[in-house]
Nucleic acid binder design. Structure first.
Ligand SMILES: NC(=O)c1ccc[n+]([C@@H]2O[C@H](COP(=O)([O-])OP(=O)(O)OC[C@H]3O[C@@H](n4cnc5c(N)ncnc54)[C@H](O)[C@@H]3O)[C@@H](O)[C@H]2O)c1
Ligand SMILES: NC(=O)c1ccc[n+]([C@@H]2O[C@H](COP(=O)([O-])OP(=O)(O)OC[C@H]3O[C@@H](n4cnc5c(N)ncnc54)[C@H](O)[C@@H]3O)[C@@H](O)[C@H]2O)c1
Lengths: 224, 224
DNA sequence: TGATTATCAATAAATATTTATCGTTTACTG
DNA sequence: CAGTAAACGATAAATATTTATTGATAATCA
């Protein structure tokens, strides 16, 4: 029996995978074929033990004294994320964010390829964004079927997000990467992943607030 | 003694705060003055108990049968995040992503205001992005000092990120919101918050992979 | 060749987070 | 105005995640 199927990888580990992957690819490009958990931990500011635990989820075994084989780890992580064969996606909403995402080279590393762009603004339809032509929303279902796409990236205004989400689901989309700061109500079997910049900014804000408070506490205690 | 200072709010709670905030503001705009944890949980697909625990971190007390006062919660959450008085920031790198961020109206809700944009591309310097003029990097330190800014948003190419980060730190910046998929090595006291789209996409990918595997498992077991 | 050391795997302990239980409060209903 | 049900807070239990401990292994060097 396959070891992988027996347990599911902790979410925090999944979330760290992309950072490992990037670093590992850097090492590979630099011609390194082995890397230790200690080394990875140093670069990512994690503890070696945690890196080892994460790596154990990939099924790759390390070698004492030298660590893990770089290429093997890359393959294993990509496989676990399903990034080993490219995933096609459509993008809805060719606005500021949408265009930036379409132009983002980095997606290639995640096996993500935006193969179609749709918008409902007549001025945008027919224009091309980084080589991809913006299509009318009327072509939605046809495009999804023709390209056999399962994933949609949503970058439309919040007011229409629910409506548009329902349209893409009706067209056959199974997973939505939602950049709109709004919770979508969709059938159970549709996978919705929200990316919320505010989440990250909230972390930054609270860390800054804490640091300011600590500083003023230290100052006060020095005065005593 | 202040209750808040005694314990630090769990990071997962901090991360949920922005979503609560948005929903609460929707309720406020709709003229609702009370909301129950049950209601919030329903809309955000959380469990009521978790919402109550999160709310308890804000210090706001609810009332049996009716819930929490909407406005009081908003104020409390904003206060805990430090979003109650606007934070100014500069943005470095007026490229695709940088411009999208500058134009993003949503930041106003987080108390974030981008008050200056800097770039090293002569073609971009002097142009305006959503009313803000792009300045040369030579003005970095002067701008930071003049505007009294503590936070920088980093949207430059990965190759120069470390170098640029060191420059903004030298100019007096204390916190960096880093959109570049690269770990920065900076002094201990500098707060660096990375926003990594790949993290979110990894989650989506792994959920899709799991769902596909489950489906094929079900199919197989039906065949038996 | 044998000692040394960096590193790994497995297991255990500690910590953090989520979820459940229980008794209490308050608005609403009849 | 008593009974009922929805919702709260506090505390406890369960679960998830991180960190520590221990013993084993393989490269390196005297
Ligand atoms: N700009 C940012 O940096 C940023 C950051 C985080 C989140 N977001 C979110 O991303 C979304 C888009 O932001 P933006 O700044 O790109 O806005 P935008 O207005 O530039 O782009 C929205 C696009 O959606 C299109 N659109 C509108 N209604 C549509 C419909 N019914 N069907 C198809 N297309 C439609 C518009 O024509 C436009 O091209 C918003 O929900 C915003 O909150 C933006
Ligand atoms: N485009 C996206 O959707 C996206 C998504 C996630 C992350 N990112 C990351 O954000 C960063 C920017 O991406 P982008 O697509 O906007 O790239 P871009 O090339 O459009 O923009 C980069 C900007 O930085 C400026 N720049 C270059 N060197 C500089 C320097 N030394 N000092 C100051 N400014 C300098 C350039 O002139 C340019 O305006 C990249 O690191 C990218 O990986 C982009």
């Amino acid at each position: 029996m396959n070891k992988e199927a027996l347990f599911s990888i902790p979410l925090p580990t999944i979330r760290r995978f992309p950072a490992y992957l990037r670093l590992l690819k850097d090492f590979e490009n630099a011609g390194e074929s082995w890397v230790s958990a200690t080394r990875l931990a140093e670069d990512l500011r994690l503890k070696p033990i945690q890196v080892r635990k994460d790596m154990s989820c990939t099924g790759v075994e390390g070698k004492p004294k030298v660590g893990f084989e770089v290429h093997e780890l890359i393959m294993a992580i990509e496989h676990h994320l399903g990034w080993d064969n490219a995933t096609d996606a459509i993008l809805i909403g060719a606005g500021n964010l949408g265009n930036a995402l379409v132009g983002y080279k980095g997606f290639a590393n995640y096996g993500l390829r935006i193969v179609a762009i749709l918008d409902n603004d007549k001025k945008k339809i027919g224009t091309t964004v980084y080589g991809v032509t913006v299509q009318s929303m009327e072509h939605l279902e046809e495009t999804v079927v023709r390209l056999g796409v399962n994933i949609a990236v949503l970058t439309v205004p919040a007011e229409v997000a629910q409506e548009v989400a329902e349209m893409v689901v009706a067209a056959g989309i199974k997973g939505i990467w939602n950049f709109v700061p709004k919770n979508l109500t969709l059938p159970e079997d549709i996978i919705v992943q929200r990316t919320d910049l505010a989440t990250s900014f909230a972390e930054l804000s609270s860390r800054i607030k804490k640091s300011i408070e600590e500083k003023s506490r230290t100052k006060r205690s020095l005065q005593n």
